Structure formats: C-alpha cells, structure tokens
Simulated assay, not measured.
Amino acid sequence: MTIAVSILPDQQLAALNEVYRKAVARKRLRVALGAAAFLAALAIASIGAEVNLRTLFTYFGHFVSYFDRLLTLDNGSRVWTNIPEWLWGWKKWSLLLGETILISYVGTLFGAVLGFAFNFLAAENTSPGPWVRFIVKRLMEFCRTVPDIVFALIFVIAFGLGPMAGVLAITIHSIGALGKQYAEMVENIDMKPVEGLRSTGAGWIACMRFAVLPQVVAGFASYTLLRFEINVRSASVMGFVGAGGIGVELITAIRKFYYSDVSAILLLIILTVFVIDIGTGWVRGRLFGKERRT
C-alpha cells in the first residue's frame, strides 16, 4: 500500500516558512520581554528589601559557625559522640512535644468544624445570598491574614500563659485557611445533583447534605489532615510568646545559648513532624486509596 505525500510549490513553502519564522520570533520576543520584566521586578524588589549580597557573603561564616556550635557539647565534643548527654532532657521535651501536638489537634479540629460551617455560606454556588457570602469571605480573610503567632500573643495577653492561647490562635487561623479551601472545592462541584434535589422541593440544608457533601467529603478530610501537619509546625513556635508547647523550652535554650539543647529540641521536632507526615499519609491512603498516599 502506497502513501501519497503532497508537495507544495516552492512559493507556498516559502510563504509558510516565513509565517512560521515570524511566529517563532514573536514567541521568543514575548519570552525575552517576560524574562526581562521578571528580572527587573526582582532587582527592584531586592533593592526595596535591602538585599545585599556582599553582606550575605561577608557574614555567611557566622551562619555556618552557629550550626557548628549547635552540634557541639559543652565539653567541646560533637553531640553524636555522647548521645545521652545530648538528649539529657528527652523526657521533659517529649511531654512538651505531646502538648504541642494536642494544641495542634484541638485547634485543627475546632477550626475544621467552623470552617466546614462557613464554607457553604462563602461558596458562590451554595451561598444563600451575596451579602452573606461577602461577610463570611471577609471574616475568613481576616482569620487567615493575621499570622497565628500574632493571635497567640494577643490571647496570651488576654488569657495568660499556657496552651489555651495556642489552641485559640490555631483555631482562628484554621477557620480562615480551611474555610477557603473547602469553599473552593464546593465551587467546583457538579451542580446537577443540587438542581435535581431543588426540583423536588428540598431545602438548602438537604441540598448541602445529600448533593454537595458527598462530592467533597474526601477532599475535606485530605485538606484537614494537611492543615494538621502545618499546625504542628506552627504550634512549635507559639511557645516563643508563651502559648505553651515545646516552643517555650526552645526559646529558653536559644536565649541562654544552650546550643546543644537547641539542636536536640530541633531534632525531636523534626522527627515528630516526620512521623506525623508519614502517619497522615497512611491515613489518607487508607481513606482514599493508594493513589493519594504520596
């Protein structure tokens, strides 16, 4: 079986090649202009942020030497040569880490519940009205715009030192973050089941329960587990302002220049985050299938 290949006349081929070269030239010009604009914006931003490469390279040795001190015990030996001495306070630090995890868990749970309640009011396709959507969206923006450590400082001033301030701070920040993620998922659902229920006379709550929620519940759970991982990291530093957890011990070690203690506490925090990451990944895999485990 033979295949016929049509050959255009030279004049048409030349015209096509010329059009192709012009299209390629225009594309290259757009890429070059985009790269130039990006570099110009980067340069302006660096000047505005007072980024000085000479200062960076001049004092980079201080950065390296600090990490060298973190890996050195008081007697001058390396931390790995005397593990019991390095991790002397592991029992106390483990209890504080447990407190940090509990702060994150309770704050994430409360934030997820309230974010779940707000998201249906904020989503464009499920909100009862434009004014309700506007108010709820602005409220969630406020919750996630203010840094959680600022909320923690405010609550420490209001309620005193302790885990309660950390729980409230994480709760408020999780309402804004999870509420936005939930609402965006709801806005991307298939509205045919909702319209079908409405045609039978079902109310708003029934539509949310039987038409919207089954489409997004898996994503809600996945985002909530991810937020829990993030909140564990956030709760680890809330102790800097007295909001409980391992952060209190970490900031004390930093201020008193207990270098080996700083590295030991950081090691425990990192290992804890690793375990939580693996654990939540396993839970996602069990709930939603192997394709979501990574």
Rank of each mutant, 00 (worst) to 15 (best):
I3K: 14
A4K: 14
S6P: 03
L13E: 06
R21F: 09
K22W: 08
K27T: 01
A35L: 15
F38N: 02
A40S: 15
A43N: 05
L53K: 07
T58M: 11
H62A: 13
L71W: 10
N75T: 08
R78G: 09
K91T: 01
W93H: 15
L95G: 12
L95M: 12
T100P: 06
S104L: 06
S104G: 15
V106N: 14
F116Y: 12
F120R: 00
A122Q: 04
N125Q: 08
N125Y: 08
G129E: 05
V132I: 13
F134D: 05
K137W: 07
E141K: 04
R144F: 04
R144Y: 06
V156N: 09
G162A: 04
P163K: 13
M164S: 14
V167P: 09
Q181L: 15
M185Q: 14
D190E: 11
V194I: 05
G196P: 10
L197I: 02
L197M: 13
R198V: 02
S199Q: 06
S199K: 07
W204E: 00
R209T: 10
A221F: 09
I230S: 04
R233C: 00
M238A: 07
V241K: 03
V241N: 02
G242W: 11
I246C: 13
I251A: 09
I265Y: 00
I269K: 02
V273I: 06
V273K: 01
V275Q: 06
I278D: 02
R284I: 10
L287A: 12
G289C: 09
